[in-house]
């Protein structure tokens, strides 16, 4: 059996792949404009590299591999020193009390009726606002893991982080979201 050799047809890229690539991207970056730009950059990079295409993988697989690199670059950019400084700490990170709750971050009990609060349609809006307050890197990992249901291994591989990195990020994101929802939703 001879292996099928795939060919590129850039004239049809938008028609055939734009929606698929956009969906792939938006579920990771959750921003329409950013996703659109990444898809467009992917097509441009694809055009530039089209002579290197060997036809072993399908056109779409090849474009996705370019897009993946674009997403990692985007992740690196938002993972800058500035983004790191925005993280609110919930626990003492050194000293005698290392690992203990910082007083003002201690969970307090919620006064609102929890069942009712969850059924409220505004919940999603409030939550989205809180996720928007997270450092971008945290928001991205949190969304992939919690909203898009990606597996731990998949996220680690895609973003080139270790699983303990991932859990630190998820943990900090969740404690911060808990605090944000406590102030703006459950005790408001």
């Amino acid at each position: 059996m001879t292996q099928k050799i795939h060919k590129l047809s850039p004239n049809d890229w938008i028609k055939l792949h734009a929606d698929y690539l956009f969906n792939y991207t938006i579920s990771r970056v959750n921003n329409h404009e950013v996703a659109k730009d990444l898809v467009q950059e992917t097509f441009f990079a694809g055009l530039k590299a089209k002579d290197n295409f060997q036809g072993k993988a399908s056109e779409r697989t090849w474009l996705i591999s370019i897009l993946k690199r674009k997403i990692i670059d985007h992740y690196r950019k938002i993972n800058s020193a500035k983004a790191k400084a925005e993280v609110k700490m919930n626990f003492y990170s050194d000293g005698e009390r290392e690992g203990e709750w910082i007083e003002e971050r201690v969970p307090s009990s919620w006064v609102n009726n929890i069942e009712k609060s969850i059924e409220n349609e505004e919940l999603s809006v409030a939550l989205e606002k809180c996720i928007g307050n997270l450092p971008k890197k945290y928001a991205m990992v949190f969304r992939m893991k919690t909203i898009q249901d990606f597996g731990t291994e998949e996220i680690c591989k895609e973003l080139n982080i270790t699983s303990s990195n991932l859990w630190v990020i998820i943990h900090r994101a969740r404690t911060q979201l808990r605090k944000c929802m406590e102030v703006n939703w459950f005790n408001n």
Binding site: F22, S124, R174
Partner: peptide
Amino acid sequence: GTYSKQNVVMTKCFNKHKEVIKKEERCL
């Protein structure tokens, strides 16, 4: 203990949010 109890509630919130997001049209 409080965190743990509330964490279950947070997961329920995230699941609600997930339903809303999945319904949204997200295309070009």
